[in-house]
Design a protein around this nucleic acid. Structure first.
Lengths: 204, 204
DNA sequence: AGATTTAGTTAGTATTAGCTTACACAAACT
DNA sequence: AGTTTGTGTAAGCTAATACTAACTAAATCT
């Protein structure tokens, strides 16, 4: 029988390019023509890999989320291997404070958030934020359980609330970056300080 | 001489309709046709009031921001008139916790945040967030200065950081609403708890 | 009334968007 | 070799979008 199907590989090859195009351009300006050009293929090809433009966008959301999760997982693994270097929550927070927004991932979330009347986009976003806050929440719980130091006990917001708040603070950093209102140093302080504050209510 | 120019009045009349259209539909789906239909006029007319679609969008951003500020101002005035009922910061927080997102204002900010490669849109956003965080910051300072109760002093994040964090938490509430991941009650808790926490580090 | 500017209506244009068709070539199999 | 399926290239199609032009009617003035 005939030549083998390389669709999956091709999709994997173009996915990062498509995702970064959506990140940089937003949904509207990431025209199918622009996407194809960046991929160095004809528009045609993209339509053999994904049903339509929206599918390319949704796939980009999933892809970028999973990239982030892989990154986090290495930090979680590192924390497990070497507990003395801080909890996973602390490491993620520190990493995020230093690199928040570097990937431009947040830009795609803004694009998605203004396309939420589409059920597929909304579903992808929901998936993403649900998993994100879930992971953050369990990391916060893990941190509060295992970390020494002055706990503020009952006064602390619940882990679920704190998780959403942490996510919000990170988003604020993104907005500060996007508008040019917050320098890299200030963004770092924002994520680190407010994040730590929400994590355990202590000044570090 | 000839008939008087009603341009300003007409603009003021249509502005809320245009703004709500952008809020509901996002930039992309708020076509000039759709905008005109909602306004009950021909597209033509809109182009006599604003230079182009982008100008309508930017005007909407400014308009919605100013609406919010007027709302806040009444709370600030009320706090000044009756200090016993809580500081302005507390009132704004409480109000926001209860009504966050009702206006759909946040939807336009998401749309704007994915159009930031346009200098005019970026400038409008920058203006908006700059004023917002400025007001929040001064309210936080006012609160910390005047409020009684257990202060956590040096451990608190600076007012500027706290202002951005509060804004972020509010945005997280918007995301939770938009994705359907946070119920009204949970959003309220999020804004109230995390907000209060960031405001003064006390459990209320 | 007549001049002059605004307001409303209708129609239209140029471009571009997303998406498809058609066809030649390449690679795997029997 | 021949068949079959996958891949690449080129062109094109339809619908919609942002934006304009042309014209009529209505106000306000002298």
């Amino acid at each position: 029988m005939p030549r083998p199907n390389r669709t999956k590989e091709k999709r994997a090859e173009l996915m990062p390019i498509v995702a970064s195009a959506f990140s940089e351009l937003g949904y509207r300006k990431a025209t199918t023509k622009a996407l194809a050009e960046r991929c160095g293929v004809q528009e045609n090809i993209l339509y053999r890999l994904w049903a339509d433009k929206k599918a390319m966008f949704v796939a980009s959301i999933d892809y970028l989320f999973e990239s982030t999760m892989r990154q986090w997982q290495t930090l979680i693994d590192a924390a497990e291997a070497d507990p003395a270097g801080g909890t996973a929550a602390e490491r993620i927070l520190a990493y995020d404070a230093a690199h928040r927004g570097d990937s431009g991932f947040y830009r795609i979330t803004f694009a998605a958030l203004s396309e939420t009347d589409d059920p597929d986009v909304r579903a992808a976003l929901k998936r993403m934020y649900s998993k994100f806050t879930g992971v953050i929440e369990s990391q916060i719980e893990g941190h509060r359980g295992h970390a020494a130091g002055p706990s503020r006990g009952g006064e602390l917001p619940g882990a679920a609330v704190a998780a959403w708040a942490v996510l919000g603070v990170a988003t604020a950093a993104d907005i500060g970056r996007e508008t040019g209102l917050l320098s890299a140093a200030k963004r770092k302080r924002l994520v680190a300080e407010a994040g730590r504050w929400l994590l355990e209510g202590a000044g570090g």
